[in-house]
Amino acid sequence: MNTLPAQSDALLDIRDLAISFKTDEGKVRAVDGVSISVKPGQIIGVVGESGSGKSVTMQSILRILPGNAIVERGEILLRQSRNGSDAEVVDVTQINPNSKRMRSIRGGEVAMIFQEPTASFSPVYTIGNQMMEAILLHRDVNKPEARTIAIDMLARVGISNPERRIDQYPFEFSGGMRQRAMIALALSCNPSLLIADEPTTALDVTIQAQVLELMKDLQRDLGMAILFITHNLGVIAQIAEEIVVMYLGTIVEKGPTREIFHNPKHPYTVNLLKAIPKVGQSRTRLAAIEGNVPSPLERPTGCIFHTRCSQRTHGTCDVYAPKLTQIGPDHTTSCFLYE
């Protein structure tokens, strides 16, 4: 087992992570040099479009990557505090994905919720059965206690009549309720980190608002950290304290939410914010970003955004890759304009 002494106060420290996929067309780089650090109790938002590598990065934390994925380099340091004893730090990339250790991290230390709640519930068991199974696996309790915890969790996420609901099957729940039940399932083992992968994308606005409020409340009450992945800038503005902007597998900008929204630096972030309609500014024309998100098979050389950037300099941006540069307290960006 690869254990390292705890160096920082970070709960999760992803360092220079690079992941590729083996495909028929060759090796495709999906994540390239991503570093994210999450402190306990922090909500970090990860924004990016399709192909930005945000989901792949999150899957690598739980080692649930597809079979053709290769972790090329980097470490994912997770601080585990076990039974009150001293915290130890493990490098998740060094653990066998099918080992007992990994299984105890999944759903125990780190929980994940998805866009499609149907994916996390089996249709043939009751909601309660599935929650209790998870609780019994990760917590030192007996069956009746597990049931009490499950009912308590369901009540907490705002499901009315949890004593009755717990014995129902997933198909008896509506979409919004299933999403909340999934959150209850994820939180029932007291994770210190919750990874939420587009948890509200499939939901209607009113339900989305409820789920966002719920997640903020739970984070406040239970003190866990949340990695919130989305492509929706509105949602990220409402929930995150700190934002990581990803494009084609790399981080282009990172900083506190207010900084990112009021003082964006990277041309991609700047343009993205100008490209979304804002209520109350209906007559302003949207600033579209030229071109399309390149296919991962055709990753541009140099700065990965240069093919669509209006401020690119010939001979620099298309040849050299910019480094992540500090431009303010906690605010970094990778762009030659700031190097």
């Binding site: 090796k27 780089r29 055709e298 990753r299 050389t301 298309d318």
Partner: peptide
């Protein structure tokens, strides 16, 4: 298709234009 820089930690190495 991009030629991958397998081990390079130094990101300022020019890569082949596709």
């Amino acid at each position: 298709m991009t030629i991958l820089n397998e081990t390079s930690q130094d990101t300022s190495i020019p890569t082949v234009r596709s």
